[in-house]
Design a protein around this nucleic acid. Structure first.
Lengths: 199, 199
DNA sequence: TAGTTCATGTAATGAGTTACATGATTAT
DNA sequence: ATAATCATGTAACTCATTACATGAACTA
C-alpha cells in the first residue's frame, strides 16, 4: 500500500511587488516607510527587506506601476516618495483576484522531532518550552496590534479596512495559540516516552 | 505609540543535509529513495527536491559524512546507495541538540485579504472555500499516514519512533484543522461585511 | 501508444537574506 | 559616548525550484 504524496509543490512568482503596491494603494510612501509598515503589520505572515524593496520600486517605476517624487526634508535625508498609478492599481487588482499559492512549510523543530529518536526525548523538553514562549510573545504582540488598529486608526478608515485586518489577525492568533497548545501535547507525548526510556 | 516589530528575522543555514542525514541514519538509501521518503512522510512540514538532494549527497560524501556504494540491478538502472558514517552521526546529533530557527511564514492568502478592501469581500468567498478544501485534503492524507505508521511499520520500530512521528503528525493535524476553522471564521467576518457593502 | 515509475544528474533561474556603505540627527 | 532612528541603495550570497537530459521497464 504505497502512500500518496502529502503536498505537491506549486510554481511561484515574485509577490513582493504586490505587497508594495498594496501598501502604496493606501497612501504614497517611501521605501523606508514601506519596510516599517511591513515589519509592524505584516511580519507575522509576510516580510520584506530593503534588498528587495528598493530594487522592486525602481523596477516598478520603470514599468509605470508607480511614480516617484523626491522630497526634501530638513534634519533628515531626502525622501523618495512613491505613488501608485492607474496601471499599478490594475496590476494590484488582477493579483487580488487570482487564487493564492498554497503555502509550503519548513519547520525545523518538526524535522528535529521527527528524527528525535537518535538523541532521545530529553533535549526536546527545553526546545519545545522555548517554542511555546516564542508563541506567547507573538500572541502578546498581535493583541497589541489589534488594540492599536481598533483605537488609534481613524474611525472612517476602520470602516473600510478593519474586517480584513481583523481576519488576518485572527489567523495569527489562532495559529500561535494552536502551536502553543501543540507544545503542551508534544511535551506530554515525549514525557511519557522519557518515562519508558528510564525503565 | 509606535508598534514593536512582530517577528524579527533570524540567520539561517542550510538544513537539507540534516534531513538527508536523518533519513540515512535509519537505513542506507539512494537519492531517489530519499526523495520519495521526504514526499511521503515529511512534505507537510519539509520538502526536498532532486536538484538539492543529489548535489548535497555528493558534497557530504566529499566531507566524509556519508559513503557511497554502487548497486547493480536488473530491470532498473544502477543505484547509488549512501550510508551514514560516524562523522555523519556526529553532525546529525550536533544539529539535533541545537535550537531550531523560528519559522517565517509567507501566506499569500493573508496578504491578499489584508489588502482586500481594494476589491471588496465578494471574491474572497471562493478563495477561502478553496483554502478550506485544501486543508481538508491534507487532513485526510495525514490520517492515512498515521494509519500507515501505526499498522504497517514493524512493531519493534514503532517503539522507537512512533511517539516522535506522532508528535509531528499531531502538529499537522492541529495546524490544518485550525486553518479550516479559521476559514469559517473569516467567511463569517467577510459575510457580515458584504451585507454592509450592499447597503 | 501514452503515461508512470525507476534512477541520476546538471544548468539556469529566481527568490530571499545579509552585509556593506554612507551620513545626519536625536535620544540615553 | 553610544545607540538608535531616519534614509537609500548595492553586492554578494545562499537557498530553492524548474527545466532539461537520458533511458529502460512496466502499466493502462
Amino acid at each position: 500500500m504505497p502512500l500518496p504524496y502529502i503536498i505537491e509543490a506549486m510554481s511561484r512568482e515574485n509577490k513582493s511587488q504586490y505587497a508594495i503596491l498594496g501598501i502604496l494603494a493606501d497612501a504614497p510612501r517611501s521605501g523606508y516607510e514601506i519596510k516599517k509598515l511591513c515589519d509592524q503589520f505584516l511580519s507575522f505572515f509576510w516580510n520584506e527587506n530593503y534588498g528587495n524593496i528598493y530594487p522592486a520600486l525602481k523596477k516598478m517605476e520603470a514599468e509605470g506601476l508607480v511614480t516617484m517624487e523626491r522630497m526634501k526634508q530638513d534634519g533628515s535625508p531626502d525622501k523618495k516618495v512613491y505613488t501608485i498609478t492607474e496601471a499599478g492599481h490594475t496590476a494590484l487588482k488582477d493579483w487580488l483576484r487570482r487564487p493564492p499559492d498554497f503555502r509550503i512549510l519548513r519547520e525545523e523543530l518538526l524535522l528535529q522531532i521527527f528524527f528525535g529518536q537518535t538523541i532521545g526525548a530529553a533535549p526536546f523538553r527545553e526546545k519545545i518550552e522555548r517554542q511555546k514562549k516564542w508563541c506567547q510573545s507573538i500572541i502578546d504582540r498581535l493583541n497589541e496590534v489589534r488594540e492599536y488598529v481598533e483605537t488609534e486608526i481613524a474611525p472612517e478608515r476602520q470602516e473600510d479596512n478593519l474586517p480584513y485586518w481583523l481576519a488576518t489577525l485572527r489567523f495569527g492568533l489562532r495559529f500561535y495559540q494552536m502551536e502553543s497548545d501543540w507544545c503542551d501535547e508534544a511535551q506530554a507525548i515525549l514525557l511519557e516516552l522519557a518515562g519508558n526510556e528510564n525503565d
